[in-house]
Simulated assay, not measured.
Amino acid sequence: MDKLLTSMFAVLCIFFSFAPAKADPADEVKAAYSAWDAAFNKADAKAVAAFYTDNAIFLPATHDVIKGPGGVEKFFGGIFGMGVTGHKLELIEAQGDGKLLVGTAKWSAKGKDAKGADQPWAGVATHVFEKQADGSLKLRVHTFN
């Protein structure tokens, strides 16, 4: 009986050592935030837009309802034209399972005031990510203030 239990325990240990670890939503969202910030900080509107699904809804602080990567690219092209730089997303919380992940973040950037002087910008954001077939995340919903 002891040999049987020992053998069963060994088999279970081997099985669980090869079972894929479930990804931590916080780690996945942090990685997505880092990549998004990198694209933003290169002032590359097309690269930023590539982080959005074809049916994405983007709700910026302007109260516009922007749909899809084309609308996102146009919006951020305008932001970059205003000289906004230094974007940073800091994770507050992430959760999810399977295909959808939700992240909340504090964001900051360096903007300009009406006279063109440097001015810090900041707020909070909510992101709904859709996991793609290759395991990457794309934004399905993005809103910020």
Rank of each mutant, 00 (worst) to 15 (best):
D2A: 15
L91M: 07
D2M: 13
A133E: 09
L59H: 04
G98S: 00
G103Q: 01
F80P: 06
G135A: 03
A133R: 05
V124W: 02
T104F: 07
F16D: 04
L91A: 04
M82T: 11
D44V: 12
K30W: 03
F75M: 13
K106W: 02
V141E: 00
N41I: 15
D54V: 07
Q132E: 05
I92S: 00
V11R: 11
K112M: 13
F40E: 09
V65A: 09
D44R: 08
A38Y: 00
H87I: 14
I66A: 06
K88W: 02
F51N: 15
H87R: 14
S136R: 03
F75H: 12
V128D: 00
G116R: 15
K99N: 06
K74R: 03
K110S: 10
Q95M: 14
A122Q: 14
M8R: 09
R140S: 05
Q95K: 15
A31Q: 12
K74H: 10
I14M: 14
S34A: 11
N55P: 10
Y52P: 13
E93T: 09
S108F: 03
T62Y: 03
S136V: 00
N41L: 06
P20F: 01
A114R: 12
V11M: 07
F16W: 08
R140L: 14
V48K: 05
G111K: 12
K138V: 10
A39N: 04
A105F: 00
E28G: 01
K42Y: 06
F18H: 08
I66F: 02
K115H: 15
F144Y: 06
I66L: 08
Q132P: 01
G83V: 07
E28A: 07
N145A: 14
D118Y: 07
A31E: 11
K42M: 09
V128W: 02
P120G: 04
G78H: 08
D2N: 13
S17C: 14
